Simulated assay, not measured.
Amino acid sequence: MTQTILYARVSTADQNLDHQRTQAEAAGFIIDEVVADHGVSGVSTKLAERAEGKRLFDKLRHGDVLVVRWVDRLGRDYKDVTDTIRLLMRRGVVVKTVINSMTFDGATTDPMQEAVRDALIAFMAATAQAQAETTKEAQKAGIAASKGDPRKYRGRKPSYDKDMLDAVVGMLALGKGTTEIARECGITRQAVLRIKADPVAAQATLERWI
């Protein structure tokens, strides 16, 4: 019997795992079980090395569906994320994201679909790593700026949150237009264009306000 498992991860004590399940259920997923890692960094710890990550690998079987909020829950290292998704697909596990409703399925044999799927995996994994690196740099800069006026350092507050940013990046990867993305995400075209021009800088701006 196949099952749908949500994998959730939070890296700090003040983050909330329940939010990730609520988001998944609101997106229409019927979750059979939640596997979650608390206080684990996606940068320094691979999924297979996390306590619950190991259990996740043991539980997943051919035909199962693995749901994650976004690929950054699996990890923030490009090679680790791409290797993990491809390993799961080889096992016959379908990986689905809550943000942008993406599906990574190893069952397809169409060369064009495979090329698009693999390009999306690579793009999303690279973005996750870039965002992680930007977060570290923003934190370092924040510490350095704390001796002065932090309000001057933070600049203008962005009109988007983390979920919106991930959604915009994912839609851009799918080739959607600026106007369509702005309408679906509820932000201005100018905000979408800024994210499109430099998604890493957009992440850095957001980090300064979290």
Rank of each mutant, 00 (worst) to 15 (best):
M1P: 10
T2S: 05
Q3L: 02
Y7F: 13
V10Q: 11
T12E: 14
D14R: 13
D14W: 09
Q15L: 06
L17S: 04
H19I: 08
Q20A: 09
R21T: 08
T22L: 12
T22F: 07
E25Y: 05
E25C: 07
E25P: 06
I30P: 07
D32R: 10
V35K: 12
G39W: 06
G39M: 07
V40M: 06
G42Q: 06
V43L: 13
T45L: 14
T45Q: 13
A48S: 14
E52M: 13
K54M: 14
L56K: 10
R61P: 04
G63D: 02
V65A: 04
V68D: 05
V68Q: 05
R69D: 03
W70Y: 05
R73Y: 00
Y78A: 04
R86L: 06
R86K: 07
R86V: 04
L87G: 01
L87I: 02
L87R: 06
L88T: 03
R90G: 02
G92Y: 07
G92D: 08
V93H: 09
V93R: 08
V93P: 11
V94I: 13
V98D: 02
V98A: 03
I99M: 05
N100F: 08
T103V: 09
T103N: 02
T103R: 08
F104E: 00
F104K: 00
T109I: 10
T109P: 04
D110R: 12
Q113D: 08
R117E: 01
D118I: 01
A119P: 02
A122W: 03
F123W: 09
M124H: 05
M124G: 00
Q129W: 05
A132S: 11
E133W: 04
E133F: 03
T134M: 10
A138E: 04
A138I: 02
Q139E: 00
Q139Y: 00
A141M: 08
G142D: 08
I143G: 14
S146K: 14
K147Q: 10
K147M: 10
K152H: 12
Y153R: 14
R154Y: 09
G155F: 13
R156Q: 14
S159M: 07
V168T: 15
V168Y: 12
M171P: 03
A173R: 06
G177L: 07
T178D: 14
E180D: 11
R183F: 01
E184N: 14
E184K: 15
E184Y: 15
E184M: 15
C185P: 12
T188M: 07
R189P: 02
A191E: 15
A191N: 12
A191S: 15
L193M: 14
R194Y: 09
R194M: 09
K196I: 10
A197D: 10
A197I: 01
A197P: 01
P199W: 07
P199M: 10
T205R: 13
E207D: 06
R208M: 12
R208P: 11
